[in-house]
Design a protein around this nucleic acid. Structure first.
Length: 203
DNA sequence: ACAGCGATTGACT
DNA sequence: GTCAATCGCTGTA
């Protein structure tokens, strides 16, 4: 499986048109895609297994629910860029900007299945346990070395990229439920994950 | 200028 | 299951 994924030949960088669609659709379809960070130390990558959609207006849990501010401005901008923010004084969360024209929206990447650069992930996370490397939004940014400087970076051109590896996740193995860690908007079912995957952040 | 608090995690009962 | 850590953004003044 890993050998297959690592062959450039079978990978395609997702085009901007992939991201310029309904945020919810993009959240679902990012499952099974490969997130890759090219670092000085080497390449670190993982397959996306859990996402959450955050919309613009009409989503009280979204950073973009109110007005555009310095922090959330990337959510209102070009699709296919990274929205990275610092939370709880400790952690970074990585999102992909995705929305139809003239609105705001982003998909939070909540969990990955480790693929390449696992030894680097272990060093970044200071643990040997493979099942504790990327099973949460703050954990995966630490494992991949994603931080403040990646906010606004282009996921087609910069060191952080997302690839289609020809892995189609069937609708019947995608679970849908309400999002984690929010107080409002719990009626919206905008969390998606691959059923029975070992790396999801919570049940 | 400042109080309040968060799209989390890890340690602990 | 509970709870503290920790810092910078945001709204209010």
């Amino acid at each position: 499986m890993e050998d297959f994924i690592m062959k450039e030949k079978y990978r395609k960088i997702l085009p901007y048109s992939f991201y310029k669609r309904s945020t919810i659709k993009v959240a679902k379809e990012l499952l099974g895609k490969l997130l890759v960070h090219n670092t000085r130390e080497g390449m670190i990558s993982g397959i996306i297994v859990e996402t959450e959609a955050y919309l613009g207006r009409n989503d009280p849990a979204s950073h973009a629910a109110a007005k555009k501010t310095p922090r959330n401005s990337v959510m209102f901008g070009h699709c296919g860029r990274a929205y990275v923010y610092f939370i709880y004084g400790n952690h970074y969360c990585f999102n992909v900007v995705a929305h139809p024209d003239n609105v705001a929206g982003a998909v939070l990447i909540r969990a990955l299945e480790p693929c390449g650069g696992i030894q680097l992930m272990r060093e970044n996370r200071d643990t040997e346990q493979i099942n504790n490397l990327t099973n949460g939004p703050g954990k995966l940014t630490q494992a991949l070395g994603i931080a403040r400087s990646h906010n606004g970076c282009d996921l087609k051109k910069d060191s952080l990229k997302i690839y289609d590896i020809g892995c189609n996740i069937k609708a019947e193995v995608i679970a849908r439920c309400s999002r984690i860690g929010i107080k409002e908007g719990l009626d919206l079912l905008l969390r998606f994950y691959i059923k029975d995957n070992r790396n999801i952040s919570r049940k």
